[in-house]
């Protein structure tokens, strides 16, 4: 069982990262700002996934399945952009 304190710490981290992403957006980093936003959002969702959704202590099959779903989405995005980028 995960200690309740861990959940609170994760929550604090999530709130802090939200603050960070709002601040970063105010800095006018140009094209980097999108990258920063996506990066921070990814960190936040992996925190939710591994702690709140308890993925880190699940059996391996759950992680493999999630990987399959994410790879599928990535392939779909990539191939669509093969059209969009070169049109």
């Amino acid at each position: 069982m995960t200690a309740l304190g861990t959940y609170v710490k994760v929550w604090l981290a999530l709130i802090a990262l939200t603050g960070l992403t709002v601040t970063a957006a105010g800095l006018h980093l140009g094209s980097l700002s999108v990258l920063a936003a996506i990066l921070i959002a990814s960190v936040k969702s992996s925190l939710v996934l591994s702690f709140f959704m308890n993925l880190r202590s699940e059996e391996r099959v759950f992680k493999v399945m999630l990987g399959v779903a994410m790879a599928t989405m990535a392939v779909i995005m990539l191939l669509t952009f093969v059209d969009v980028w070169y049109r």
């Binding site: 191939l79 093969v82 059209d83 969009v84 980028w85 070169y86 049109r87």
Partner: peptide, 10 residues
């Protein structure tokens, strides 16, 4: 009317 690159890749 998809891009040529996409056409040959697909």
């Amino acid at each position: 009317g998809m891009s040529d690159t996409a056409r040959w890749v697909f």
